[in-house]
Amino acid sequence: MRLEEKITIKNPQGLHARPAALLAQIANKYDVLVQLKKGKTVVDGKSIMGILMLEATKGSKITLIVEGDSAQEAFAEIKELLENEDPDK
């Protein structure tokens, strides 16, 4: 299964530090392929380095692509994190 959706980052800190680490941790839990796309840059969602490279600040639009058997679950969990507005989460 392959899921793809354009998501706006709502976290006030953007995808830095804790959110980036959390995202990588979530992505690594699942046996799926996770990709994040911003403009022309595509990175591995299981890599904290990759996520930081995106430089996704609050308000930026990124495309989340999840592929694999448990794509549905992984997609939901990652999406929730990306759209989280609480800076402490």
Binding site: A17, N28, D44, M49
Partner: peptide, 12 residues
């Protein structure tokens, strides 16, 4: 903790 994460980074 951050350093350990970087060390295990897939992309790297």
């Amino acid at each position: 903790d951050a350093h350990l994460l970087l060390l295990e980074d897939r992309m790297l």
